[in-house]
């Protein structure tokens, strides 16, 4: 009887240890998130104290006179993201439609792997490719075309040098495409077949079923997927740094060079020797962190909505 008891307690003892180790690992993630926030705020205190809220609205970024403002970086981040989303969202819904409804299962599998591999290619390679291969092509084809046909719009009028906000946006679109596609594809597959079949039974065409039944049914998750992609696009660093041109100026033309928060960080961090310069850069990072955090929370919120109505996860 006594022996039995000790055995039982020793069993639960080893389990307690294992369980506490696993709880510690989980708590680490909480520590990391709060740590990121606290550290970024703490290390940017100098710049927060000096510039206050005007940091967000000042366009000037001058290390020589020690005046730092994030406006151009924030503008560039938002502009590239908007371009990327405008291209990537329709494209990924169409690709998901092809993968889930139109293609033969084998073809769908092959194309699906190709799209996933797009996500696997490191962003620095997108950067190299964008700078040395895509930018020259842009300056010879797409930019003259846009300027010739839509040149009356200010955004498509400027120097056709290949690198700039528009090029960065297009590269970003390719990079977020796989993320949105994979979620949208899952959503399409989760829509109950009965719903689709009844719509087909009414004589609807594939497109009508897709945009009136499938997309409407999974709308909240598709919105969630878009926010996921948005978060990715906001924080993408290396690819953008290569092709955006790195200039602290808000310019009306999308052909002109600009910068994003991430590209400024990557580009200037090594030069930042002064404490104020460094803390301004870290404050930029804080702005980016807050922005992406909000996007991720929104994404999870929309994805969770779908989960509740399905009783299953994505």
């Amino acid at each position: 009887m006594k022996k039995n008891k000790t055995e039982c307690s020793s069993l639960s003892f080893s389990d307690t240890i294992f369980k506490s180790i696993s709880i510690i690992s989980v708590c680490l993630t909480f520590i990391i998130v709060t740590g990121i926030f606290v550290q970024l705020v703490w290390n940017s205190r100098e710049s927060i104290e000096k510039f206050g809220f005007s940091f967000l609205f000042t366009q000037q970024w001058n290390p020589v006179t020690s005046v730092f403002g994030a406006a151009s970086s924030i503008y560039g981040t938002l502009a590239t993201t908007v371009i990327a989303m405008a291209i990537a969202v329709p494209l990924s819904i169409l690709v998901a439609l092809f993968l889930s409804e139109l293609a033969h299962p084998l073809i769908s599998k092959f194309v699906g792997i190709c799209i996933e591999l797009l996500a696997a290619i490191p962003s620095i390679i997108y950067g190299m490719w964008g700078l040395f291969v895509f930018a020259p092509v842009m300056s010879k084809t797409l930019q003259p075309f846009l300027q010739k046909n839509f040149g009356f719009l200010k955004i498509f009028n400027g120097h056709k040098i290949g690198i700039g906000v528009l090029t960065a946006g297009i590269i970003l679109a390719v990079m977020v495409l796989p993320f949105i596609t994979s979620v949208v594809c899952d959503v399409f597959k989760m829509v109950p077949n009965v719903l689709k079949e009844s719509a087909y039974g009414m004589g609807s065409t594939t497109w009508e079923v897709t945009h009136k039944v499938t997309i409407r049914y999974g709308l909240s998750s598709i919105v969630g997927a878009c926010f996921l992609g948005l978060g990715r696009a906001l924080g993408e660093t290396m690819a953008v740094t290569f092709v955006i041109g790195n200039r602290h100026k808000i310019s009306a033309s999308l052909f002109d060079a600009g910068n994003t928060i991430a590209s400024t960080l990557a580009n200037e961090f090594a030069e930042a020797s002064e404490p104020l310069y460094l803390s301004s850069l870290i404050e930029l990072g804080l702005v980016l962190f807050v922005l992406t955090f909000i996007m991720q929370v929104l994404a999870q919120f929309w994805l969770a909505k779908m989960k509740k109505s399905f009783g299953g996860g994505l």
Binding site: Q39, E236, F289, T292, A299
Partner: peptide, 18 residues
């Protein structure tokens, strides 16, 4: 899920400060 979406450059910045 939120951390997965945080840009890697921010993680780098965090580790830099620590």
């Amino acid at each position: 899920n939120v951390i997965i979406g945080i840009p890697s450059i921010i993680i780098g910045l965090f580790v830099y400060t620590v």
